[in-house]
């Protein structure tokens, strides 16, 4: 297999192109500018359209328009821009418009800093927009996974008629790794619900408006049932959990640091294992819970003051202690400082 050296953001963009994405709408923001820049070069080569919108609000609503026709469409942004997209994401979810939304987190709140961080877990996973809705959230941890998960995200979005979010951070977006790209997708599902060019179908409407509350309630129940089915897409990865006395839970860039922590912990005799959620929604509750009998304590390593940790606590209840470890605002947690905190608990 031929390897190519790509940045995380380029891998995301090329993964999308290979998945048949031909429309991209976005607004510049660091640290994800390489994604729109890649599309601006690449999409004209495949007869696609790149459009730099006047704002993230406009971009997400262009996605709503284009996705409603049945086209494979994507947008990307970073923290402040993702805040602006939330109303649109709520509309996309309710109107069941498939699309892929890439959120490359940076230090926040406010304008914050442009360095990679993980403070937007709640925004992506718990629904930063209004109303009851659920989106699949995929968290790549390597450049290879960035390409693969983006590629698969388009199929998931079409399969469930639902937005899919790729949640990465500035570090992943900027790092370069050699990867093998997926094959160009050839078969695409039919979309009889879409505003497509088939003239023999009845008219279609893309809408999230249900003025009669009993009808809206039915829609919410149906969306919720769909969410139950989407929970079947749960994915996670583990490292040395078989004999572990302690488990560190981490996703994305934090999981890369956690891998080094596991290695070093083992060198000093602490049996540490890693559980890395790949889907943040659905969250691998059962996988984490299954480790409870063998494990003395859990650690949640994240580049925020503690967001994912709430899901870890939901997974295990009060059966074991869960400790938060993290650095904030774009400061990267160091392996040795993380290990020190784990050692303090383990040596008690």
């Amino acid at each position: 297999m031929e390897q190519v050296l790509l940045k995380g953001s380029e891998a995301i963009a090329e993964g999308a192109v290979l998945a048949g994405c031909r429309f991209f709408f976005g607004y510049p923001i660091t640290p994800q500018n390489e994604i729109p820049e890649y599309f601006a070069r690449r999409l004209p080569q495949v007869n696609g359209t790149f459009l730099q919108a006047e704002s993230e609000i406009a971009a997400i609503n262009m996605v709503y328009g284009a996705g409603g026709t049945g086209a494979r469409v994507m947008t990307s942004s970073s923290s402040p821009g993702m805040s602006l997209k939330q109303e649109g994401i709520s509309y996309l979810s309710c109107a069941e418009v498939p699309c892929v939304i890439v959120s490359i987190m940076r230090g926040g709140p406010g304008l914050g800093a442009i360095q990679g961080a993980q403070p937007d877990y709640f925004q992506a996973v718990k629904g930063g927009g209004h109303g009851d809705y659920k989106n699949i959230v995929l968290a790549p941890s390597t450049v290879q996974e960035a390409a693969d998960l983006t590629y698969q995200a388009f199929d998931l979005a079409d399969k469930y008629r639902n937005p899919v979010i790729i949640l990465g951070d500035g570090i992943l977006a900027q790092m370069m790794e050699p990867i093998v790209l997926p094959n160009e997708k050839q078969d695409f599902p039919e979309k009889n619900w879409a505003l497509n060019l088939d003239k023999n179908r009845p008219r279609n409407v893309i809408s999230s408006s249900y003025p009669i509350v009993e009808e809206l309630e039915k829609v919410i129940i149906r969306l919720n049932q769909k969410a139950e089915i989407m929970k079947g897409e749960v994915r996670w990865d583990t490292l040395q959990v078989e004999d572990a006395d302690y488990i560190i839970v981490a996703y994305g860039t934090s999981a890369r640091i956690a891998k080094a922590v596991v290695r070093q912990a083992r060198e000093i005799g602490i049996k540490l294992g890693l559980l890395r959620p790949i889907t943040l929604w659905p969250f691998p509750y059962d996988a984490i819970y299954s480790l409870v009998p063998q494990v003395k304590a859990f650690f949640a390593l994240e580049m925020s003051t503690g967001q994912m940790i709430e899901d870890v606590k939901i997974a295990i209840g009060r059966e074991r202690p869960v400790y938060h470890i993290g650095r904030y605002g774009g400061v990267i947690p160091r392996v040795n400082e993380t290990l020190e905190k784990i050692t303090a608990v383990a040596k008690g």
Binding site: Y64, R203, V205, I206
Partner: peptide, 21 residues
């Protein structure tokens, strides 16, 4: 065929549709 846009965003939604079709 109709698409129902969020408040104020109809021209962006129309842009998305028009760029595909």
């Amino acid at each position: 065929d109709m698409s129902a846009a969020a408040h104020g965003r109809a021209p962006a939604v129309a842009t998305g549709i028009k760029r595909v079709q």
